[in-house]
């Protein structure tokens, strides 16, 4: 397992580094631009148009970094398990569990690392905009975090579970794609499967939404019944996501999905592998 993780890191770190440099430098550029705009007293059309262009570049730079990250995660899973390098992967004398877990662990680290770089970038942006008083604001924020440490840990844990769920859903989609003969439509069908599975989960999530028990954002534990979960859950953000920092039934369902998709992926790779 240690060797698999080592090689996963070796294969992916350059592209991930490029993505994170793009994100961080975009925030630095954006912060500098905002500072510059705030310090300008007269409006010069030429300078403003250059600033708008650079600001657009800042937004695009952040998006580009995130897209590079997602593309690398999907590409690395596809290439290693069912694509160009799949022969090499599946000829290794290691179990499918080790192959899958090493891939999930490394990609989790890439995503968490990129989130931290993004947060650091936001902090740098704030530093440019707000000046050094941001450190005092940050200290106050940290103090609040420790006062509501249970909420902080809940958010971190819920986010982590969501990352893992996204990764196993991608893995399941790719494993499913391998057993069918989709030819040139593979990408389209893969996208449809991925979003179809996501929407299917949303429908099943009606069940946990009927009974919500968890930690709210102000740090109190609440039990709530609602008959309107079905209506809210099909929206982009449910009431419960806004209200709860940690929703126990939803968390248990997400963990259940992770286990289900992981074992389905493992079954498909173990029993139904059809490398071209």
């Amino acid at each position: 397992m240690r060797l698999l993780i080592k090689h996963e890191f070796k294969d992916g770190w350059v592209d991930i580094l490029i993505a994170n440099i793009s994100i961080f430098s975009s925030f630095v550029l954006g912060g500098g631009l905002i500072r510059l705009v705030l310090s300008i007293n007269t409006i010069n059309p030429l300078i403003m148009s250059i600033l708008v262009t650079l600001f657009t570049a800042f937004i695009l730079g952040v998006f580009a970094g995130e897209i590079i990250l997602i593309a690398n995660v999907v590409k690395s899973m596809y290439t290693k398990f069912v694509g160009h390098e799949a022969y090499l992967t599946h000829m290794l004398p290691v179990s499918t569990d080790k192959l899958l877990l090493s891939k999930l662990i490394v990609n989790c680290i890439w995503i968490v690392g990129t989130i931290l770089v993004t947060l650091l970038g936001v902090f740098i942006l704030s530093l440019f905009v707000g000046g050094f008083k941001i450190f005092a604001d940050f200290a106050a924020f940290v103090q609040t975090l420790f006062q509501h440490f249970d909420v902080f840990i809940s958010v971190v844990f819920t986010t982590f579970i969501q990352i893992v769920l996204t990764l196993v859903t991608i893995l399941f989609t790719l494993s499913l794609l391998n057993i069918g003969k989709f030819g040139k439509k593979k990408v389209l069908i893969g996208v449809l499967i991925y979003f179809g599975v996501g929407y299917g989960m949303k429908i099943v999530n009606i069940i946990p939404s009927l009974f919500s028990f968890g930690l709210t954002w102000d740090g109190t534990w609440v039990f709530q019944r609602s008959y309107f979960g079905a209506i809210e859950i099909l929206g982009s953000v449910s009431y419960y996501q806004l209200y709860f920092a940690l929703n126990i039934p939803q968390l248990l369902f997400n963990i259940g999905y992770i286990i289900l998709f992981y074992f389905l992926s493992r079954y498909l790779l173990n029993r139904k592998l059809e490398l071209e």
């Binding site: 799949a86 022969y87 599946h90 000829m91 004398p93 290691v94 179990s95 057993i179 173990n270 029993r271 139904k272 592998l273 059809e274 490398l275």
Partner: peptide
């Protein structure tokens, strides 16, 4: 070599079914 898993019948490599070994 274990790169196709959907088949019927029996395959033994050095006396054992296809596996990590």
């Amino acid at each position: 070599t274990g790169l196709l898993k959907q088949y019927q019948g029996e395959v033994l490599i050095d006396g054992s079914p296809i596996s990590i070994e």
